[in-house]
Design a protein around this nucleic acid. Structure first.
Lengths: 93, 93
DNA sequence: TAGATAGTTCAAAATATTTTGAACTATTTT
DNA sequence: AAAATAGTTCAAAATATTTTGAACTATCTA
């Protein structure tokens, strides 16, 4: 694995190594379409500050797509990143 | 995902979310047979204390098989865990 | 326009993880 | 038997991550 990839790889695993973020990911997988951060936050019962922090980490890891529309931020899973860094991890190292 | 699985899932991602442990895993993947902790530690240049700590976390996550033979501890990757918790993660959540 | 809503940012406090060295057990070598 | 080797354990120190609340920006609603 090259060095830059390794940094991404670690960001991805770190992002997934947390119960709150895992709940976010589960929620996004099962809704299977764009939803607002607020909707997710309410569903899994976390404060908006906490949500903001966790969504940021997921986004920085490339695990979610985010789009700001006016007041609201819409998020969805980035399946490409899951595929590259999770599903194909073992194969690629 | 059930609750017990979630704990394992997080232990697995936590274990993989560290540069030292990722190096260990890379080393074990490419050697592709049992090696001692000492050999790995020398190869990636970490202290034995540090090695002991990191091997313990990998083992607790179920990512490595370990076998003590007299003074030495032989380790290898547990492909089943990689398969269940990494490769099939996205599919299973 | 005032108030409500969605989300971000900041810094402090709380927690968790990692590193380090010394002391230890067990085994092997000289 | 003494010294060397492989690895573990422990506690302290160093770092990193997470949570919290207050203050903030921007947009929407009444």
């Amino acid at each position: 694995m090259k060095n830059v990839e390794k940094i991404n790889q670690i960001a991805v695993f770190k992002a997934l190594a947390d119960p709150v973020r895992l709940e976010i990911v589960e929620y996004l997988k099962q809704t299977n379409h764009e939803v607002t951060c607020g909707e997710v936050g309410k569903a899994i019962d976390i404060s908006k500050t906490s949500g903001s922090y966790h969504f940021k980490l997921l986004q920085e890891a490339g695990l979610i797509n985010a789009r700001k529309e006016a007041r609201e931020k819409y998020v969805s899973l980035n399946q490409k990143t899951f595929n590259n860094y999770v599903t194909n991890f073992y194969k690629n190292i």
